[in-house]
Design a protein around this nucleic acid. Structure first.
Lengths: 231, 231
DNA sequence: GTTTGATTGAATCATCCGTTTGACAGCTGG
DNA sequence: CCAGCTGTCAAACGGATGATTCAATCAAAC
């Protein structure tokens, strides 16, 4: 009998959209409640009414981005381990599963691809400073699963070394997400394929080479650069 | 318009020291002039008197960090090119010359090593948002020189590819500088050598492998337009 | 000793911030 | 009809911020 409202009320969604856009453009700290409500054409009190506080709104924006990314990471990793039963998942495919969800595969809002990436980069560069506990927990879970997968794919790399290398890799993605626009602009026509797909392919090759530095390559027939989709 | 004196007076230096420490700990945006003057035990007006404005103080802090780093980068690159006259400078030595100045070789203040690195990371993650023009120019100069050196060391890597790879590398350093403390904490005893020297050695191996991914076979020298970008 | 210019100090300004309030409208179920 | 809930709104509150004012201080030059 009791009716449950599932749909987001219209102004609340407009607030979230405005907040996402402004956060992506300027960063969390540089956006005021009044900026958001002005862009959303809502009243100043709307933020505190709908989200409790400014921090609540930020936490909601963050979790709405991180959760789908986390779930897709896990799903892709599950799919990979099912695809290579018992065997070792190829490193490039692991990196792909780890990185691609950050690059806009899961689109929740109607932000442009660049703004989406920028916001994701900002979120993941926070690194436990002001992250909601639930979000931090999700991050830890994915990191843990992928670290184990990386360790299995690179059994000859000492675990301490692997920690640092994945750390460097993470920094590379975040920096790429945050500054791809600037790189496109400054490099003029020299940055080649400006599509996210091309950037991802480049990054995966770079990160894979760095991660497996020093491991002896068995006579496994290596194919050329792969920029393939799995699904 | 108030005249700004250039000579270092005692309270001015104390202001800069306090500002450096707070900026490193909390970030530029999260520090008010009152925080700085309180820590420096100076009057609130001192900031505006000595630096013209809060932004002027920030710009001075930034340039006092970036300029020595830039100069040492250039000096190390000059030394390398003199050490290998006519020859190709080994990639690892180039990366070392590029990265080591960021890690505290040049110490201007009495900040702890971690705070120094964190501040450097914060500065270089600004990426042309609020950087003083002179500082941005210095960055462009070093990037340009090192990009040419990298291109010479890796003649078979297409220039577009090289731009992206150096970009990934830059992200790795910045992330490492900003979050090394967190990594130490999260990895517990698993992160092995926590010394900056050890981290640098790890990073150089990682970055070198990523930069020269795919080189050893079939040298196809390619020439393309060179590009500069912030780092 | 007086003058002068550079600093410092306390108070104040105007503005912005996040949040709260209370009034008001629209709707719903009784 | 009217209670009661929900959402919106203008207005205001208390606080923090960067900047400014103006008198007081102080050391050196004259």
């Amino acid at each position: 009998m009791r009716e449950i409202k599932l749909s987001q009320s219209e102004p609340k969604r407009k607030l979230l959209d405005a907040a996402e856009q402004l956060f992506a453009e300027r960063g969390f700290e540089a956006v005021s409640v009044r900026d958001v409500t002005q862009l959303a054409k809502a009243n100043v009190a709307a933020v505190n009414y709908h989200f409790g506080s400014r921090e609540g709104m930020i936490a909601l924006v963050i979790s709405r981005y991180v959760t789908p990314i986390h779930e897709e990471r896990i799903a892709r990793l599950d799919a990979l381990e099912k695809k290579w039963p018992g065997k070792v998942v190829p490193l490039e495919e692991l990196i792909d599963a780890f990185v691609r969800p950050l690059a806009g595969t899961v689109r929740k809002s109607d932000l442009s691809e660049q703004l989406f990436c920028k916001l994701v980069g900002r979120i993941f560069s926070l690194q436990g400073e002001a992250l909601p506990p639930a979000v931090e927990e999700q991050m830890k879970v994915s990191i843990d699963r992928f670290m184990k997968a990386f360790a299995k794919a690179l059994p000859t790399v000492p675990s301490e070394e692997l920690i640092w290398r994945t750390h460097f890799m993470a920094g590379g993605v975040i920096h790429m997400l945050l500054n791809q626009e600037m790189l496109h602009r400054l490099s003029g026509g020299a940055s080649g394929t400006p599509t996210m797909e091309g950037i991802l392919a480049r990054f995966i090759r770079f990160a894979a080479a760095g991660l497996r530095e020093g491991v002896e390559v068995e006579p496994t027939p290596k194919k050329g650069p792969q920029a393939t989709f799995d699904f």
